[in-house]
Amino acid sequence: MARSVMNHWNFTGTFSEFADEKKDLKILELNEAAQLSGVLATMPSRILAEYPEIDMQRLPYASNSFDLVVHSDTLEHVPNPVEALTECQRVLKDGGLLAYTVPVIVDRMSRTRDGMSPSYHGSPGDNANDYIVISEYGANMWIEVIKAGFDAVTITTFDYPAGISISASKGRRPQPQRRKAPQASNLFRRFLGLLRPEK
Results as ranks from 00 to 15, higher is better:
158 F>H: 10
100 Y>F: 12
183 Q>F: 14
4 S>F: 00
80 N>C: 09
101 T>R: 07
13 G>M: 00
5 V>R: 01
197 P>C: 03
29 E>T: 07
12 T>W: 12
101 T>I: 04
111 R>A: 10
52 P>T: 06
123 S>E: 14
164 I>S: 00
119 S>M: 11
49 A>S: 11
178 R>Y: 09
159 D>M: 14
12 T>D: 14
115 G>F: 01
27 I>A: 10
165 S>K: 02
115 G>C: 01
97 L>Q: 00
149 G>R: 00
66 F>V: 05
158 F>V: 01
15 F>Q: 01
180 K>R: 14
82 V>C: 02
105 I>G: 09
104 V>C: 03
151 D>R: 04
51 Y>M: 04
26 K>H: 06
90 R>P: 04
191 F>A: 06
161 P>K: 05
149 G>W: 05
77 H>S: 08
167 S>Y: 00
50 E>G: 06
165 S>H: 04
142 W>A: 12
74 T>W: 04
150 F>S: 00
77 H>G: 02
55 D>Y: 02
61 Y>M: 08
127 N>V: 05
4 S>A: 07
99 A>F: 01
114 D>M: 06
124 P>Q: 03
82 V>G: 07
94 D>M: 14
161 P>T: 06
93 K>V: 13
12 T>A: 11
123 S>F: 13
62 A>Q: 15
25 L>H: 00
167 S>L: 00
139 A>F: 09
147 K>S: 12
75 L>N: 05
152 A>W: 08
2 A>C: 04
127 N>S: 14
74 T>M: 04
40 L>K: 04
22 K>R: 12
181 A>I: 11
142 W>S: 14
12 T>P: 09
1 M>N: 02
159 D>K: 12
60 P>Q: 01
153 V>A: 05
121 H>N: 05
182 P>W: 10
45 S>N: 15
4 S>R: 07
38 G>T: 04
135 S>A: 11
145 V>I: 06
109 M>Q: 11
174 P>G: 03
112 T>G: 12
55 D>L: 06
142 W>G: 14
26 K>D: 12
107 D>C: 11
45 S>C: 15
